[in-house]
Amino acid sequence: MEIAELSDLLVWAAATALAVAMIAFAVDLGRRTEERVGARTQERVAVGAATAPGAPTAGADAPAAGADAPAEAAPRRRAAGIAMATTWLGTAMLLAAIVLRGLAAGRTPWANMYEFTMVGSFIALVVFLLLNVRRDVRFLGAFVTGLVTLFLVVGLNSFHVAATGVQPALQNYWLVLHVGVAIAATGIFTVSFVMSALQLLRDVRDEGSPFLSRPGFRWLDRTPVPATLESMSFRLNAVGFVMWTFTIIGGAIWAEDAWGRYWGWDPKEVWSFVIWVVYAAYLHARTTRGWSGRRAAWFVVVGYACVLFNFTGVNLIFNGKHSYSGIS
């Protein structure tokens, strides 16, 4: 039992570190706002600009070098440094917590809601950190760490169950594949949702919306232009969508063995299907004149709302075959 308790403690510690990271990220966004206002007009000209990962960075003096350039040119960003360090720390502690949880339960550590929350949060953090290796996406930090902190605290308080083995229906390698890929997709959708939400906010602000033009929202100017956010979000969504497709196919294969049918419109199946169709609609919207850009971004918001509902609502409200949360 001690290992399980240590795991829980580490999750608390990770949540704390990430809360600190969130504050530091927010401070960083706020500080940089001052320097950035001047750069804004310039940047609008360079719509769609961004530094291509892997490509030689076009000098920071070129206005076209993209939304990140002023950030690179800015003096040292101490808050951002602290934020990144605490995010790495929080992520490492979360990883340790997951490993210990697996040891305590003697199986793959993603078989109930609490563990799903833990691992999904971890994936979201890893996606953020990996993206950040290739290009500066620290503007996402406050939102990613904020969401993850929220998830972890809700997970600990509401979804927590003791670490133990699983019932016969779950004893299958598909637990590793189907659930693992679903969690990874959820983590990816979390980050792309943040991007699309910022894209919408920034787009509306740029358009001169009275509410979002208030000084309190000046930090939005620190984010890349909407077109860049849209293309970053798309790339993650494309990966997430393929993984979600695999999740559904894998789930069907597993259901065929475990429940005696590959598809039965169980509430979880219904909502996985809805999510799949919403993200498919998103991909089609992007290629439809008049629906690309802002409207397509709304699909991501709706899609992510469905992802969250599928995870919380469907587990807790509906009574289906997927009631493996362990919460009664």
């Binding site: 809805v274 919403v278 498919a280 089609h284 439809t288 629906w291």
Partner: peptide
């Protein structure tokens, strides 16, 4: 047209939802 395909996809998503809310005879 792509636009109609898009509408139909959205309709499909919405139409699937009641089946998770109301009990279903087949289940």
């Amino acid at each position: 047209s792509m636009r109609v395909a898009l509408m139909l996809l959205m309709l499909l998503a919405v139409a699937a939802v009641p089946g998770s809310i109301f009990p279903q005879r087949s289940q």
